[in-house]
Protein backbone atom coordinates (compact mmCIF):
# COMPACT_ATOMS: atom_id res chain seq x y z
CA UNK A 1 0.00 0.00 0.00
CA UNK A 2 1.69 3.24 -1.07
CA UNK A 3 2.07 6.11 1.34
CA UNK A 4 -0.25 8.45 -0.56
CA UNK A 5 -3.15 5.95 -0.56
CA UNK A 6 -2.59 5.28 3.12
CA UNK A 7 -2.70 8.99 3.91
CA UNK A 8 -5.91 9.42 1.92
CA UNK A 9 -7.47 6.52 3.78
CA UNK A 10 -6.33 7.92 7.14
CA UNK A 11 -7.74 11.33 6.22
CA UNK A 12 -11.05 9.75 5.27
CA UNK A 13 -11.26 7.90 8.60
CA UNK A 14 -10.26 10.96 10.62
CA UNK A 15 -12.74 13.14 8.83
CA UNK A 16 -15.56 10.68 9.53
CA UNK A 17 -14.53 10.46 13.18
CA UNK A 18 -14.55 14.23 13.37
CA UNK A 19 -18.08 14.24 11.97
CA UNK A 20 -19.21 11.84 14.66
CA UNK A 21 -17.15 12.82 17.68
CA UNK A 22 -15.79 16.29 16.95
CA UNK A 23 -16.02 18.52 20.00
CA UNK A 24 -16.85 21.78 18.29
CA UNK A 25 -20.50 21.03 17.68
CA UNK A 26 -23.28 20.61 20.20
CA UNK A 27 -24.17 16.95 19.79
CA UNK A 28 -27.15 16.89 22.09
CA UNK A 29 -30.29 18.99 22.28
CA UNK A 30 -33.04 19.69 19.87
CA UNK A 31 -31.10 21.23 17.00
CA UNK A 32 -29.35 19.22 14.35
CA UNK A 33 -25.59 19.30 14.94
CA UNK A 34 -24.86 19.94 11.29
CA UNK A 35 -26.93 23.08 11.47
CA UNK A 36 -24.97 24.74 14.22
CA UNK A 37 -22.66 26.68 11.94
CA UNK A 38 -25.57 28.04 9.97
CA UNK A 39 -27.39 28.97 13.17
CA UNK A 40 -24.52 31.13 14.28
CA UNK A 41 -24.21 32.92 11.01
CA UNK A 42 -27.85 33.68 10.52
CA UNK A 43 -29.27 34.14 13.97
CA UNK A 44 -26.53 35.29 16.26
CA UNK A 45 -25.05 37.99 14.12
CA UNK A 46 -26.33 41.44 15.00
CA UNK A 47 -25.49 42.57 11.47
CA UNK A 48 -28.57 40.72 10.25
CA UNK A 49 -30.72 42.91 12.46
CA UNK A 50 -29.04 45.89 10.88
CA UNK A 51 -30.05 44.66 7.46
CA UNK A 52 -33.63 44.13 8.52
CA UNK A 53 -33.76 47.46 10.29
CA UNK A 54 -32.53 49.19 7.17
CA UNK A 55 -34.65 47.35 4.66
CA UNK A 56 -37.61 46.31 6.76
CA UNK A 57 -38.61 42.64 7.09
CA UNK A 58 -41.20 42.88 4.35
CA UNK A 59 -38.64 44.09 1.89
CA UNK A 60 -36.33 41.15 2.35
CA UNK A 61 -36.60 39.30 -0.97
CA UNK A 62 -37.22 35.58 -1.04
CA UNK A 63 -34.81 33.01 -2.47
CA UNK A 64 -36.95 32.72 -5.60
CA UNK A 65 -36.17 36.31 -6.51
CA UNK A 66 -32.47 35.70 -6.56
CA UNK A 67 -30.47 35.59 -9.74
CA UNK A 68 -27.76 32.91 -9.94
CA UNK A 69 -24.55 34.53 -8.83
CA UNK A 70 -21.57 32.93 -10.53
CA UNK A 71 -18.07 33.39 -9.23
CA UNK A 72 -15.40 34.24 -11.67
CA UNK A 73 -14.21 36.73 -14.15
CA UNK A 74 -14.30 39.75 -11.93
CA UNK A 75 -11.64 39.35 -9.24
CA UNK A 76 -8.50 40.65 -10.90
CA UNK A 77 -5.05 39.13 -10.62
CA UNK A 78 -4.06 41.49 -7.82
CA UNK A 79 -7.33 41.32 -5.90
CA UNK A 80 -7.25 39.81 -2.39
CA UNK A 81 -10.21 37.72 -3.57
CA UNK A 82 -8.23 35.96 -6.28
CA UNK A 83 -7.20 33.00 -4.10
CA UNK A 84 -10.64 32.63 -2.61
CA UNK A 85 -12.18 32.62 -6.05
CA UNK A 86 -9.96 29.76 -7.17
CA UNK A 87 -10.87 27.81 -4.02
CA UNK A 88 -14.60 28.28 -4.68
CA UNK A 89 -14.07 26.89 -8.17
CA UNK A 90 -12.15 23.94 -6.69
CA UNK A 91 -14.98 23.15 -4.27
CA UNK A 92 -17.29 22.91 -7.25
CA UNK A 93 -15.15 19.98 -8.45
CA UNK A 94 -14.05 18.23 -5.28
CA UNK A 95 -14.61 18.58 -1.57
CA UNK A 96 -11.59 17.44 0.40
CA UNK A 97 -10.20 18.41 3.78
CA UNK A 98 -7.29 20.08 2.03
CA UNK A 99 -9.46 22.20 -0.27
CA UNK A 100 -11.85 23.14 2.50
CA UNK A 101 -9.00 23.91 4.89
CA UNK A 102 -7.41 26.28 2.39
CA UNK A 103 -10.77 27.84 1.65
CA UNK A 104 -11.42 28.52 5.35
CA UNK A 105 -7.90 29.92 5.77
CA UNK A 106 -8.54 32.30 2.89
CA UNK A 107 -11.84 33.42 4.39
CA UNK A 108 -10.15 34.05 7.74
CA UNK A 109 -7.43 36.18 6.16
CA UNK A 110 -10.05 38.18 4.25
CA UNK A 111 -11.95 38.81 7.48
CA UNK A 112 -8.89 40.75 8.56
CA UNK A 113 -8.59 42.59 5.27
CA UNK A 114 -12.29 43.58 5.16
CA UNK A 115 -12.89 43.86 8.90
CA UNK A 116 -14.12 47.45 8.56
CA UNK A 117 -16.65 46.63 5.85
CA UNK A 118 -19.80 45.41 7.62
CA UNK A 119 -21.38 43.98 4.45
CA UNK A 120 -18.25 42.09 3.47
CA UNK A 121 -17.82 40.88 7.06
CA UNK A 122 -21.31 39.46 7.08
CA UNK A 123 -20.80 37.65 3.78
CA UNK A 124 -17.44 36.33 4.92
CA UNK A 125 -19.02 35.02 8.09
CA UNK A 126 -21.58 33.25 5.93
CA UNK A 127 -18.83 31.75 3.78
CA UNK A 128 -16.97 30.63 6.88
CA UNK A 129 -20.04 29.01 8.45
CA UNK A 130 -21.10 27.29 5.27
CA UNK A 131 -17.51 26.21 4.57
CA UNK A 132 -17.28 24.53 7.96
CA UNK A 133 -20.60 22.80 7.37
CA UNK A 134 -19.50 21.51 3.94
CA UNK A 135 -16.14 20.36 5.32
CA UNK A 136 -17.92 18.26 7.94
CA UNK A 137 -20.57 16.81 5.69
CA UNK A 138 -18.59 16.65 2.44
CA UNK A 139 -20.55 14.50 -0.04
CA UNK A 140 -23.43 14.41 2.41
CA UNK A 141 -23.79 18.19 2.50
CA UNK A 142 -27.10 19.49 1.24
CA UNK A 143 -26.97 19.62 -2.57
CA UNK A 144 -27.85 23.31 -2.56
CA UNK A 145 -25.06 24.24 -0.15
CA UNK A 146 -22.49 24.62 -2.94
CA UNK A 147 -24.83 26.90 -4.89
CA UNK A 148 -25.34 29.05 -1.82
CA UNK A 149 -21.58 29.15 -1.27
CA UNK A 150 -20.99 30.27 -4.85
CA UNK A 151 -23.73 32.83 -4.54
CA UNK A 152 -22.21 34.20 -1.33
CA UNK A 153 -18.86 34.51 -3.04
CA UNK A 154 -20.38 36.21 -6.09
CA UNK A 155 -22.06 38.71 -3.80
CA UNK A 156 -18.84 39.29 -1.91
CA UNK A 157 -17.19 40.33 -5.15
CA UNK A 158 -20.00 42.76 -5.88
CA UNK A 159 -19.75 44.24 -2.40
CA UNK A 160 -16.01 44.72 -2.15
CA UNK A 161 -14.83 45.42 -5.68
CA UNK A 162 -14.91 49.12 -6.51
CA UNK A 163 -17.75 50.40 -8.69
CA UNK A 164 -19.81 47.21 -8.49
CA UNK A 165 -22.58 48.39 -6.17
CA UNK A 166 -23.62 51.48 -4.24
CA UNK A 167 -24.53 51.33 -0.55
CA UNK A 168 -28.24 50.61 -1.08
CA UNK A 169 -27.51 47.86 -3.49
CA UNK A 170 -25.02 46.29 -1.08
CA UNK A 171 -27.70 46.18 1.60
CA UNK A 172 -30.07 44.48 -0.79
CA UNK A 173 -27.44 41.95 -1.88
CA UNK A 174 -26.62 40.97 1.69
CA UNK A 175 -30.30 40.65 2.58
CA UNK A 176 -30.81 38.29 -0.34
CA UNK A 177 -27.91 36.13 0.76
CA UNK A 178 -29.26 35.90 4.29
CA UNK A 179 -32.58 34.78 2.91
CA UNK A 180 -30.87 32.04 0.91
CA UNK A 181 -29.12 30.99 4.09
CA UNK A 182 -32.43 30.69 5.91
CA UNK A 183 -33.85 28.56 3.12
CA UNK A 184 -30.83 26.27 3.19
CA UNK A 185 -31.05 25.96 6.95
CA UNK A 186 -34.68 24.88 6.73
CA UNK A 187 -33.87 22.34 4.01
CA UNK A 188 -31.01 20.85 6.04
CA UNK A 189 -33.29 20.55 9.08
CA UNK A 190 -35.95 18.66 7.12
CA UNK A 191 -33.37 16.24 5.71
CA UNK A 192 -31.98 15.54 9.16
CA UNK A 193 -35.37 14.70 10.66
CA UNK A 194 -36.05 12.02 8.06
CA UNK A 195 -32.71 10.32 8.55
CA UNK A 196 -33.21 10.04 12.31
CA UNK A 197 -36.45 8.08 12.11
CA UNK A 198 -35.09 5.64 9.56
CA UNK A 199 -32.01 4.75 11.58
CA UNK A 200 -33.52 3.71 14.88
CA UNK A 201 -35.05 0.31 14.15
CA UNK A 202 -32.05 -1.27 12.40
CA UNK A 203 -29.92 -0.28 15.38
CA UNK A 204 -32.23 -2.15 17.76
CA UNK A 205 -32.27 -5.21 15.54
CA UNK A 206 -28.51 -5.11 15.31
CA UNK A 207 -28.15 -5.02 19.08
CA UNK A 208 -30.45 -8.03 19.44
CA UNK A 209 -28.57 -9.92 16.77
CA UNK A 210 -25.16 -9.28 18.33
CA UNK A 211 -26.36 -10.24 21.80
CA UNK A 212 -27.86 -13.46 20.44
CA UNK A 213 -24.59 -14.21 18.71
CA UNK A 214 -22.54 -13.47 21.84
CA UNK A 215 -24.71 -15.72 23.98
CA UNK A 216 -24.41 -18.49 21.38
CA UNK A 217 -20.63 -18.16 21.59
CA UNK A 218 -20.81 -18.25 25.39
CA UNK A 219 -22.89 -21.44 25.30
CA UNK A 220 -20.45 -23.03 22.85
CA UNK A 221 -17.54 -22.02 25.08
CA UNK A 222 -19.21 -23.53 28.14
CA UNK A 223 -19.98 -26.72 26.24
CA UNK A 224 -16.38 -27.11 25.11
CA UNK A 225 -15.14 -26.44 28.65
CA UNK A 226 -17.49 -29.09 30.06
CA UNK A 227 -16.47 -31.58 27.38
CA UNK A 228 -12.82 -30.88 28.15
CA UNK A 229 -13.43 -31.68 31.82
CA UNK A 230 -15.25 -34.93 31.11
CA UNK A 231 -12.58 -36.17 28.62
Amino acid sequence: MDEEARKTFADEVDSRLEDLFGEDEKPTGEDAPSLEDLEIAVEADPAEEVVEALLGKDEVPTAQDLPEAEPGGTAGETSPLRELRSMVLSIDWEITDEVMGTFLDQVESLKGAYGQDRWASLLLQGLSSLGRYIRRRKGKAHPNSINVLKSLYGSLEKVVLPGKADEDEKKRIVARELERFRELKKDVAVGRGRAATVLQRPALEEIKEVIRSEFAKLRAELRSMLQGKSD
Binding site: L20, F21, P27, G29, P33, A203, L204, I207, I211
Partner: peptide, 13 residues
Protein backbone atom coordinates in the same frame (compact mmCIF):
# COMPACT_ATOMS: atom_id res chain seq x y z
CA UNK B 1 -23.57 7.51 24.40
CA UNK B 2 -24.96 10.51 26.27
CA UNK B 3 -22.90 13.10 24.45
CA UNK B 4 -23.03 11.82 20.89
CA UNK B 5 -26.29 9.91 20.72
CA UNK B 6 -27.82 12.52 18.43
CA UNK B 7 -25.11 11.80 15.91
CA UNK B 8 -24.56 8.08 16.22
CA UNK B 9 -28.27 7.25 16.55
CA UNK B 10 -27.98 4.07 18.56
CA UNK B 11 -28.78 2.47 21.88
CA UNK B 12 -26.44 1.30 24.59
CA UNK B 13 -26.95 -2.04 26.24
Amino acid sequence: YNKFNQRIQTQMV
